[in-house]
Design a protein around this nucleic acid. Sequence first.
DNA 1: CGAAATCATGACGAATCAATGACAACCCTG
DNA 2: CAGGGTTGTCATTGATTCGTCATGATTTCG
Lengths: 224, 224
Amino acid sequence: MAALLVIEDDDRIRLSLALALEDEGHAVREASTAEDGLIAQRKDPADAVLVDLMLPGVDGFECIRELRRTDDVPIIVISARSDTHDIVAALEAGADDYVVKPVAVKELSARLRAVNRRVRPAASPVPALVFGELEIRPEAGEVRLHGEPVAVTRTEFRLLCELAEHAGRVLSRQQLLERVWEYSIGDERLVDVHVGRLRQKIEENPAAPRHLVTMRGLGYKLLR
Amino acid sequence: MAALLVIEDDDRIRLSLALALEDEGHAVREASTAEDGLIAQRKDPADAVLVDLMLPGVDGFECIRELRRTDDVPIIVISARSDTHDIVAALEAGADDYVVKPVAVKELSARLRAVNRRVRPAASPVPALVFGELEIRPEAGEVRLHGEPVAVTRTEFRLLCELAEHAGRVLSRQQLLERVWEYSIGDERLVDVHVGRLRQKIEENPAAPRHLVTMRGLGYKLLR
DNA sequence: CGAAATCATGACGAATCAATGACAACCCTG
DNA sequence: CAGGGTTGTCATTGATTCGTCATGATTTCG
């Protein structure tokens, strides 16, 4: 649904949170310190940041203020502490919401949507398409693997988008030719070549693809 | 601080909440049913609405949906129930925040401020668009690099603003022609030329642009 | 098992695309 | 009306990308 940045020092909590959020369809990047989080957000802005308050070194409050200095990104605090004082301080520092651990992922997702509704009233909600470690951002014209941008050509990108739009469904070479290339006639081998090139770029092991799968005799499909 | 509407059927809670909020400097109106609340809000809109979920007759969820149908007012749910299901349902119905009773007034005030900050971006006229060392001030018609003003021409400035407004998104040459030049027809190479000139001015190394990047086959985009 | 069908992949020339410098037309402004 | 700055057009150049083909691998099925 969106690209998130989770800043949390406890590995177990961070990992389980990240996993759960990915299940909800978000693309999650992680940081275990405020410093790392700030750098990550500067280098590659997420659509929302989830931050713990108790962090080693620079703490959560400072982290929020620093984020707010340059960035208007929605910030949700996730803290074990439910003191009014902390809540008020975090919100005053610039956070948009504050939830107390343990938190249900469904609730978190709903709160993210609520904040986002306010934050981008007009911006078209083009969600990133997430396939595990693979992210596709149609509006940015960009593909990422493990959060790292991958250079794909225009045809590869269109092909990938077409497959992603119908994730899980088999598309025949004929269908792909019509939709990506806009020919009705043409060599179906052409699709193979581009699928091959795409695999070299987006699959960890192109010989045993996990996402861009061949359905022998039928065509190709993209899996999560 | 602001005009609030409290919709809550329990007299004791409503009154004590109203008193406490008035102590915080808010002007509070009260309603004990969803119907009364909706009428009150229609007749004389408050700046924010606090609503209980369990109301006699029309319940809180319905009340939120009805408010949202015509009004963009911030809505904070105040409920005794802390089920994830209720929280998600209330947020999905259009609420901006959800707090569980009993709630500290200081917290409530802070949450109101947090929501309001999002709801009236009008307070800040036009935020300077900051892309690392590059700043664009649309209202001042000026561009700065490392804080130093950079002379850009009118067309370059418009082009830059257009890209900045959709930061991170690819804009095709066609889109840029339409929005910056207001032609629908025209030579797309024109865009290239101006992008090139802009790069000479705003990029440290125009040959390896860090902000104004080319998306081959797609168009251009501006990165942070 | 072996043949046929299907798919993967590397190589290569052709086609496409973007960057840039040169230049003339067109502003303004003094 | 003269001159500096700005704008749009064009041609050239270099790089990337595309589509085709040939070859080798893999699967299917008789």
